[in-house]
Nucleic acid binder design. Sequence first.
DNA 1: CTCTTGACTGAGG
DNA 2: GCCTCAGCCAAGA
Length: 109
Amino acid sequence: MQPETDNFFEKVYQVAKLIPYGRVTSYGAIAKYLGAARSARMVGYAMNGSHTKDVPAHRVVNRKGLLTGKHHFDGTNLMQQLLESEGIEVVDNQIQNFDILFWDPFKEL
DNA sequence: CTCTTGACTGAGG
DNA sequence: GCCTCAGCCAAGA
């Protein structure tokens, strides 16, 4: 059965899956791409179920490039480990060169 | 229906 | 640049 792309949550998952390897984006960017620029919080809220999906939630951070959602991962530094595993530099929960690694769905899609 | 919570963001000081 | 406040929207109790 086809995924519920009509649901806000599913839309978030779909976009998150489109994030290329070694790239990151912000909740607001995804939200805006979905047409709900003010629903950035909903994006993060939706990610609560991301662990049951094939969604690379670790590639999604807040606008500052800070790993605000790392507490939702199993370990304490799991999110950082995943990012570093993709060649992304992370220091003190903050992504380095965030402006360069930032993946804008409007420009890339 | 009302109230609370939240992986956010933008504006103001 | 940092801190604080308010707005925003959806889901759960």
